Computed example of a mutant assay.
Amino acid sequence: MFYHNKKLQYFKPPEKPDAVYAMKIQELIGGTFGEMTVMMQYLFQGWNCRGPAKYRDLLLDTGTEEIGHIEMLATTIAHLLDKAPLRLQEEGARDAVVGAVMGGSKPGDVINDVIAAAMNPQHAIVSGLGATPSDSVGYPWNGRFIVSSGNLLADFRSNLHAESQGRLQAVRLYEMTNDRGVKDTLSFMIARDTMHQNQWLAAIEDLESSGLETTPVPSSFPLDLEKREFAYQFWNHSEGTESAEGRWAKGPSMDGKGEFEYVAQPQPLGPEPEPPQTPIQLHGTPKTQQQQKTQGNGSSAPPLVESVTVKNPEV
């Protein structure tokens, strides 16, 4: 079961409202690499974990922490939307500002209305100046963003990727504001992303050293069933040979089970494709007129799918 502590993990309120920046913060909640994604990813990986208890506990600890991160961001958005200007001007932004100056009005009031036009309208219409489970352009969070495969090494690598992208986005948002309160809150979350990147690297090392799972994933698949002569070849598929200078082009493979080989001019190993002709009932375009004549009239051919009548069992 889950319990909720009413105190936030960490929080410094924004210095002033900023409805447009609130829309940007939404990316850290409901974006592809937002907190909703890592929260659900870690929790489902933990719930589905059949491995040692320490890995299950690691996943559930971190997934539960991410719930608190969403609450922090939602609270930040509520403050950023506080007293947000909701009046929209009929004039365009440029004309409205110029008109205010020429007419003796305060340009700042008009500029606030222009800013309101740029805010996420759902923050006013749908959530009543609150956060939503969506990204910065209003796309709803999607469960397809998460990875939970049942293979811990594959999952831990996905977690490292998610934390790397998440920290990158948080840092970019940090650079997009001068609000000291927002920066302070983000600096805490960026630090936690640093820890999470390191913990998934440590978990990968721990898991591989245990021998339960190693590279290549899945390590349970017999290597003699793959075509080993191609397993460590780097194929140069674009102009230039600069890729030959990399670690991946020569020397022992990272899994220690082969030697990298650089193939400068890879050649096709299969024939030119010759797709089979479609059944006449599908009325596809054949390769030649002769085939078209041979096919004849598809409507007179037997149906592709036989109808099946299901009868209710007698009582």
Rank of each mutant, 00 (worst) to 15 (best):
T214E: 12
D224R: 01
K6E: 10
S253Q: 09
V263R: 02
L81W: 08
G246W: 00
V110N: 05
P275F: 11
Y174C: 09
W248S: 12
I29H: 06
D113K: 15
P279H: 08
Q41F: 01
H161M: 12
V137F: 07
S127Y: 15
E226V: 12
K250S: 11
E306G: 03
D155W: 07
P52T: 10
A93F: 11
R94N: 03
M23H: 05
E90F: 12
T64F: 01
T185G: 07
D224N: 07
P271Q: 13
Q233W: 08
I115G: 02
S219I: 07
D206C: 02
T177K: 05
E27R: 14
V97H: 00
G270W: 14
L160A: 05
P266K: 10
T294H: 10
P218T: 00
Q267L: 06
T215M: 12
P252K: 09
E90M: 13
I111L: 07
G298D: 11
E242V: 12
L58C: 03
D95I: 01
E226C: 05
Y262P: 04
Y232G: 00
A170K: 08
D179E: 00
P271L: 14
M189W: 02
D61R: 11
D224P: 00
P222Y: 03
I204C: 13
L80F: 10
L282R: 15
F44D: 01
Q265K: 12
T294F: 14
C49P: 07
E71V: 06
P121Q: 11
Q197T: 02
L186M: 01
S209T: 12
Q169M: 15
A74V: 02
D135G: 14
R172K: 11
V101W: 05
F221Q: 02
Q169W: 08
Y21P: 08
N236R: 07
